[in-house]
Amino acid sequence: MSSMQLGNLGYLLLLGAILVFWLFVQNRESLGKKAQAAAAWGLIFLGTIAAIGLWDDIRQTVVPQQAVFADQGRIELPRAPDGHYYVTVGLNGAPVRFVVDTGASGMVLTRGDAVKAGLDLDGLAFYSQAMTANGPVQTAPVEIATVSLGPFSDRDVRAYVNDGEMEQSLLGMTYLQRFDRLEISGGKMFLER
């Protein structure tokens, strides 16, 4: 746990202790009923914490994931609740999550995803420029030795590492053009070769 999380936990424990103390001092005559109420609220509190802690796991089982149909040469990507399509692509063997962006020209990596793919950030030259919705950003052109998506594998794929802040890597048109068919229908994106 980080120091921030420990501080939050300490604060919640202190707040809980104060509430319990107040509960017992307020009505000493009916302690049995107060103990039942405190137990009920304690269970509600623990249930809420458990749900928050397990939310990512719950969401992963409820939200559909990308499906690969290797025999048909097809990949299906479900639309995420935020309206975007996400796909996990292997870069030099490392899984990297991308948002599919048909408005992006190239494959653009965050600095963190570039490190995951085994690229040396210290050796990159950020001399090219890309235009984004937030204005221009500096990028460094790179070549990724192996890019794999389901049964499809490509070698020496050109990409860019973004020097600015970016939440998610973008899978743009230079990679998507490698597919024979890209279709959006019924809340799914289909990629075929």
Rank of each mutant, 00 (worst) to 15 (best):
F179C: 09
L124I: 00
A40W: 11
R79T: 00
M131D: 15
L171M: 06
V25R: 14
V89A: 03
F179W: 15
L119N: 00
A114T: 06
A159F: 02
Y11T: 14
A114N: 03
V62M: 10
D57F: 08
Y11M: 10
S30Q: 11
G135M: 04
Q36W: 14
A140D: 04
F24L: 15
L119C: 00
G16S: 15
R28D: 00
R79D: 00
Q72V: 09
A35M: 10
F126W: 02
E192G: 02
Q168E: 11
T61H: 12
V99G: 05
T61G: 15
G135F: 04
L91H: 06
G172H: 05
P136W: 11
L121K: 06
G16V: 14
G90F: 06
D57K: 03
L13T: 13
D113P: 00
V96R: 05
A67S: 08
G16C: 10
S185V: 03
I44N: 07
D163F: 08
A38M: 13
G103L: 04
Q26E: 09
R28S: 09
G47L: 00
V147W: 08
R74W: 06
I49E: 03
V99F: 07
G187Y: 03
D180R: 10
N8T: 08
L182V: 07
G118H: 04
L15A: 15
T174K: 06
I58T: 10
T132H: 00
M173R: 08
L77C: 05
G73T: 05
N27Y: 03
S128R: 13
S153K: 06
Q65V: 04
R111L: 08
R158L: 14
S148R: 07
Y86C: 02
N134Q: 06
S105A: 14
W22D: 10
G106S: 12
R97T: 05
G187H: 06
I49S: 03
G32I: 07
Q72K: 14
A37T: 13
S105W: 11
M107D: 06
M166N: 03
Q66I: 02
V137S: 11
L54K: 15
E76I: 02
T61S: 12
T48M: 12
G106P: 00
T146F: 03
Q129C: 02
Q138N: 15
G53Y: 09
Y160A: 12
H84I: 01
G103A: 01
A94W: 01
G73A: 01
A17W: 03
F21W: 13
Q5K: 10
L6H: 03
Y127M: 09
I18E: 07
M4S: 11
E183L: 11
Y175T: 12
W41F: 15
V63P: 04
G10L: 14
R28F: 06
L19R: 11
P151E: 07
A70Q: 11
F24E: 08
S3F: 07
L121I: 04
R97K: 09
M1A: 14
L19G: 11
G164F: 05
G90T: 07
V157E: 09
P64Q: 05
S185C: 04
I44M: 13
A130N: 10
A94S: 04
E29I: 12
V20A: 15
D57M: 11
E167R: 08
I75G: 09
Y175L: 15
G90K: 05
L149N: 05
A67D: 13
G112F: 04
A38H: 08
V20Q: 09
L46T: 12
A39Q: 09
L121S: 03
G106T: 02
G164M: 04
A117K: 01
F179N: 09
R97G: 07
M107Y: 14
